[in-house]
């Protein structure tokens, strides 16, 4: 229970907590420094891949807020991601807005769509939630495919958004890194906030939270909307990264891939999302150089993870290592 966890946290002496906090801060600083230094040691292509990993990491993390902390597995986040990307590209290439305004519009559009989806989906749980979000996401896909006047249909939308210094791949990587760091920090704060604790309470026992007087529906709607906001941020960054968006961007594959990343990294671990995103994207890169059958490999990975490692590959490896370690010490 979350409340017990909170109590245990208070019981730790203050000096020990500050030592621990300092240690965590040091680890975070080292990781950030390494990530900042990345473009100096890698090729242009590899930095591009790292940028993509960060963008998809934000998407996977936004899925994890719901799946890991509210117990709601969403298959609509690929669509929210895509809505933002579409709006950003449409605003710049067709309406002629500035990229900054376009980003704002894109994120707002994704958040509004998420709020709309949440009003419907938050009434349900479990498989029903999954089905509903799947159907809602498919509406977006259908619209992007058919509303050719605006979305360009199968041809999608194209437009180069990276002006000025953003044209440099390393600078763009740093911008994305900054966004990813800020978004991760915000999401981390969110799940540790009283609001996040309420979400966890809903995950563990909806009826208990209801009888404690919490408005479960409203909390889920707000949680879903915030999660959609972050999916929208990832989508806007993707529009800059890819300069192109098509119905494939909003298709179910996108949601599935995002969810698979969150699961691979470990549901409920939050930062695992980046490890999941790195694992899946690197796998895609390797596989794509040998075969065109990435869909098959993605499907097989999904089946494999579901059967053998539903707690996530990272968690599974950790457990296996721990077991091996215990054996060797015995």
């Amino acid at each position: 229970m979350s409340m017990v966890g909170q109590g245990a946290l208070d019981a730790v002496p203050l000096w020990r907590r500050s030592v621990r906090d300092a240690r965590i801060a040091l680890v975070v600083a080292v990781i950030l420094a390494l990530l900042i230094a990345l473009p100096f040691g890698l090729t242009r292509y590899q930095v591009g891949l790292a940028t993509e990993i960060l963008i998809y990491g934000i998407l996977a993390m936004s899925i994890d807020i719901l799946a890991g902390f509210a117990g709601r597995t969403s298959l609509a986040h690929g669509a929210l991601f895509g809505v933002s990307a579409y709006v950003v590209l449409y605003a710049v290439s067709t309406l002629g807005f500035s990229p900054a305004l376009a980003v704002l519009l894109g994120v707002v559009a994704a958040t509004a769509t998420a709020a709309l989806f949440a009003l419907v989906a938050a009434r349900t749980a479990g498989v029903y939630f999954l089905l509903l979000t799947l159907a809602l996401g498919m509406i977006v896909w259908g619209i992007c495919l058919r509303w050719t006047d605006v979305t360009g249909g199968e041809n999608g939308l194209r437009g180069n958004l990276r002006m000025g210094s953003l044209r440099d791949y390393a600078v763009f990587y740093w911008v994305v890194l900054g966004c990813a760091a800020a978004a991760s920090f915000a999401m981390w704060r969110l799940v540790r906030s009283p609001f996040g604790l309420t979400l966890r309470g809903i995950r563990d026992s909806e009826s208990r939270m209801r009888s404690l007087g919490y408005n479960v529906y409203l909390h889920l709607v707000v949680g879903f909307t915030i999660s959609g906001l972050f999916a929208g941020i990832a989508g806007a960054l993707y529009a800059f990264f890819n300069s192109f968006v098509s119905p494939t961007t909003v298709a179910l594959t996108q949601s599935v891939q995002g969810l698979l990343m969150a699961i691979t990294g470990g549901i409920g671990t939050l930062f695992g999302a980046f490890i999941g995103s790195a694992t899946i994207l690197m796998l895609e890169n390797v596989v794509s150089s040998y075969t065109e059958r990435w869909q098959t490999v993605l499907g097989l990975t999904f089946i494999f993870v579901m059967i053998f490692a539903p707690e996530g590959i990272v968690g599974k490896l950790g457990a296996l290592l721990a077991r091996a370690g215990r054996k060797s010490t015995n």
Partner: peptide
């Protein structure tokens, strides 16, 4: 292999759908 775990079942069939389609 995933009997009784609703979400794992759904996501597994999703993986199957991807493979069959491809």
């Amino acid at each position: 292999f995933v009997r009784g775990h609703e979400l794992r079942e759904v996501l597994l069939t999703l993986g199957v759908a991807f493979v069959l389609n491809d």
